[in-house]
Design a protein around this nucleic acid. Structure first.
Length: 477
RNA sequence: GGCCCCAUCGUCUAUCGGCUAGGACAUCAGGUUUUCAUCCUGAAAAGCGGGGUUCGAUUCCCCGUGGGGUCACCA
């Protein structure tokens, strides 16, 4: 059987990592059977609509390497793929269901509804619509409509019985219909609610597997009822676990960075992000930690999806990003790094500098901080310079060092190292102190790439200048 | 609160009744090294509690506890 899956983002904000996460599973499942992965835009909420949100999703997909078969910016056999352009379709089915008595008009004002909820809250009775308008006679309905009163269409839910489905991830899930209230299907503005549109569209678009978050489980009965009333075969439902914040609550942008594009800006590689998120709630059949998107798409399956909601902890992403950075070819790394190089980065020295810092990169954005002292004169903190020796000794060491290095003809790491080592041995300097002092004098930092290679790249003249100002600093101390 | 879902190291997870409970990240220790990082080695670290079922339960069932989700004319 060819699987048809879909992702149905709502263009109301930033492109969310959860959307990418879900899409990856959808895509893989569809691709394995040569089926189709569909992008449908659920833009029925006009109040929260944000024009740029949709294009950001496409940019995020492009960056991550996610492609799809229908919908989105493409088209397809089931166009249109924007719900706002399918209003007449929903309207037709709504009319049909209303005529059949499965949907009924409700004229309750939002004030009355609010009052009702408050009372329920206060009395501790089960929440939900009380079904007042169910009792309306045909005459009353016609009269109200003729009077131009605004109304919504509600789903007439049986007051007894159970409804259940076999979830592909969780097994049997069942609800007592007595607890399900009559949800709104068509809003007073004529737009469908999510519940209504999703059922119509999934059916018409021939979706076979509906992957969605655990948060949707409780609305399952409404959807199933619609399938029943429409006499349609429901798709296979797979409720994925909810990705969580550190406090176990549903992943939110308030408590986490959930914007896909912000990971790009922070210098993460898309392949690392993909690898990382795919390991949330799912594990590779061979227990692999690092694997490509292509491999994931081939081996992904619902039976390895966990039921527990994973916490979105990006520590592992940091590690992974480093792994991916180090596995890049020189050319590839260059391509990725270019957008992160500061304006004053000496491009002619790129190939001398970058190999010295590659294994220290956690993100691509780290490149500036790790390389700045190569091309910017550093501020040298006196306390670091004199950490393990007093000012007079350091000044003495620097003086001799300047003299020695000044005589170096071929400014190469090996030669620099030989001179410095011999100087240190001659005067019996404490090796760690001596080397660290030089490191600080030249770079302003205690943490740098190998000292002599670094000095070679910085250049003789700049090194001597830095040593001289450090000497003055030591003397003044 | 009603309903629903869930429950293995700090985190991501393996285990589909036999476990001395495995791996990865993070942490700590050691090695390599002029520092940091990389890399290598090692350590510490988990089955929420109580009942069943069974020769045997982390694995199956029930109860409790805990956590989460949902109860909108938002998705």
């Amino acid at each position: 059987m060819k699987r048809r899956t879909r992702i149905a983002p709502s263009p109301t904000g930033i492109a969310h990592v959860g959307t990418a996460w879900m899409s990856l599973f959808d895509w893989g499942l569809a691709q394995q059977t040569d089926g189709a992965f569909v992008v449908r835009i659920e833009d029925t909420d006009r109040r929260r609509f944000i024009a740029e949100a949709e294009s950001e999703i496409y940019r995020a997909f492009e960056w991550l390497g996610i492609t799809y078969d229908e919908g989105g910016q493409k088209s397809g056999p089931h166009a249109p793929y924007h719900q706002s352009k399918r209003l007449d379709i929903y309207q037709n089915y709504a009319t049909q269901l209303e005529e059949e008595g499965h949907l009924y008009p409700c004229f309750c004002s939002s004030d009355r509804l609010k009052e009702m909820r408050d009372t329920q809250q206060k009395n501790g009775t089960p929440p939900g619509y009380d079904g007042l308008c169910r009792a309306l006679t045909q005459e009353e309905i016609i009269a109200n409509k003729d009077a131009g009163e605004s109304y919504v269409l509600r789903l007439k839910t049986p007051t007894a019985g159970t409804i259940s489905w076999n979830d592909a991830i969780r097994g049997q899930i069942s609800f007592d219909l007595a607890h399900i209230d009559d949800a709104v299907m068509i809003k007073s503005d004529g737009f469908p609610t999510y519940h209504f549109a999703v059922v119509i569209d999934d059916h018409l678009m021939e979706i076979t597997h509906v992957l969605r978050g655990e948060e949707w489980i409780s609305s399952g009965p409404k959807h199933l009822l619609l399938y029943r009333y429409l006499e349609w075969e429901p798709p296979i439902f797979a409720h994925m676990p909810l990705i969580r914040n550190a406090d176990k609550s549903k992943l939110s942008k308030r408590k986490n960075d959930v914007s896909i594009m912000s990971y790009k800006e922070k210098g993460y590689l898309p392949e690392a992000l993909v690898n990382f998120i795919v390991l949330l709630g799912w594990s590779h059949p061979e227990g692999k930690e690092i694997f490509s998107l292509e491999e994931f798409l081939k081996v992904v399956s619902l039976d390895r999806v966990q039921t527990t909601g994973p916490i979105f902890d990006t520590k592992k992403l940091d590690w992974m990003n480093g792994q991916y950075i180090r596995s890049l070819s020189k050319e590839e790394l260059h391509t990725r790094l270019v957008p992160f190089l500061p304006r004053d980065f000496p491009l002619d020295q790129y190939h001398a500098i970058i190999p010295l810092v590659t294994e220290r990169l956690v993100t691509l954005a780290d490149v500036e901080g790790l390389t700045a002292f190569f091309y910017r004169t550093p501020e040298v903190p006196a306390n670091l310079l004199l950490k393990r020796a007093d000012g007079s000794l350091v000044a003495e060491q620097l003086k001799l060092l300047i003299t020695t290095l000044d005589q170096v003809g071929t400014w190469e790491a090996a030669e620099i190292e030989r001179r410095i080592r011999s100087l240190g041995e001659t005067h019996n300097y404490h090796k760690k102190q001596f080397f660290m002092m030089i490191r600080v004098a030249v770079t302003g930092s205690t943490q740098t790439p190998p000292l002599f290679e670094t000095m070679e790249v910085i250049g003789k003249q700049a090194v001597l200048e830095r040593l001289q100002s450090a000497q003055q600093l030591a003397q003044a101390a």
